[in-house]
Nucleic acid binder design. Structure first.
Lengths: 187, 187
DNA sequence: ACCTGAACACCGTTCAAGT
DNA sequence: ACCTGAACACCGTTCAAGT
């Protein structure tokens, strides 16, 4: 069995960013964890921006695969939305981490352009999926309204995660999402 | 007229943090803007944590004064809530900045304890004020329910700001808040 | 193909020294 | 009371050098 150094780097870096953000990611610390020198990280990812871009791209791909699977595995709307919020919930359960692109969105102005583009792409994937779900359960909405409603759902869930993370209390996340559901913001 | 160096530092630092976060705040850059050497910043704020703490404390005090004023100036619920979301809106209008404590919440794990405590205090002030407003317009709710509803409103608005900031589009913020209002999440 | 040590300009912090 | 230069251990990055 061969361990792919590039993948090892990405796995460790993803965890670091989900905990401390893009600015909090240190090549030297990362190198120590992987067991190589920090200069060697640059062999695999020439700049920190390249690494950030690769992380966000992979994160979005994995998320999209999960969301596509959700819709393929059942046609129960409740399961779909439960599965959607579950991604964000699991990040918190997993060492009180955040959504990779949510935490980097807060650092938006400090992000290299290539990372910024991938953070935007993650938002697009979320909005697109939610918008598709809304097409089914709220067919009376116009495309613009669906798009806007989807963005509102995404924003609210990211906010719930941000606030619950600060409280280090998964109960806050659950109760907040429940409040969204009760209000009818989530279908 | 005397210019208070300490205040000059805080004003410049607040803007930097609202744009690039606590980690993005550089003493050397800050010193350049203020016109002193970076070592001199340490005379006023021994550590970066001290500065961050002072910033968040001041930000919360100013916010609380504004919110208290809102309730004193009218007894129109709509004006209150309009005024509430307006704080977050203005940060975006003002060079696409974020709520000081919202952006620092994303860096929570990297924050010195004294800064963390002030970020928590800001959340508490928001939840308290919203909860008081809910006491008036939703008197049937229990204290726990009001508290939870207030937290959900705060989380949703922070999320709206985070996402709209990434889009650099005040229209996204407005439409998202409107979606919250329509859903009945905001009173 | 993959890794390294050494150097560079950055960072927060400390401290002895200046006025 | 307020500021400074110099030093320290950090940071991302570069590059010539190793295997």
């Amino acid at each position: 069995m061969t361990t792919d150094t590039r993948e090892t780097i990405m796995a460790a870096a993803r965890k670091m960013v989900q905990t401390r953000g893009y600015n909090g990611l240190s090549f030297r610390e990362l190198a120590k964890e992987v067991g190589i020198k920090s200069a060697s990280i640059h062999y695999h990812f020439p700049t920190k921006g390249d690494l950030g871009q690769a992380l966000a791209k992979r994160y979005t791909e994995d998320g999209l695969a999960y969301l596509t699977g959700l819709r393929a595995d059942s046609d129960d709307l409740n399961l779909w939305m439960k599965g959607y919020t579950e991604i964000f919930r699991m990040a918190l359960v997993n060492d009180n981490r955040m959504c990779l692109c949510g935490i980097m969105a807060a650092e938006y102005d400090d992000l290299p352009p290539e990372v910024r583009a991938e953070v935007d792409a993650f938002t697009d994937v979320n909005v697109r999926w939610l918008s598709d779900v809304l097409s089914i359960c709220r067919p009376q909405l116009s495309d613009d309204e669906k798009q806007q409603q989807a963005l509102a759902i995404y924003a609210a869930v990211e906010g719930a995660q941000l606030v619950a993370r600060g409280r280090d209390d998964i109960g806050v996340f659950d109760a907040t999402v429940q409040a969204y559901r009760t209000a009818g913001l989530l279908p």
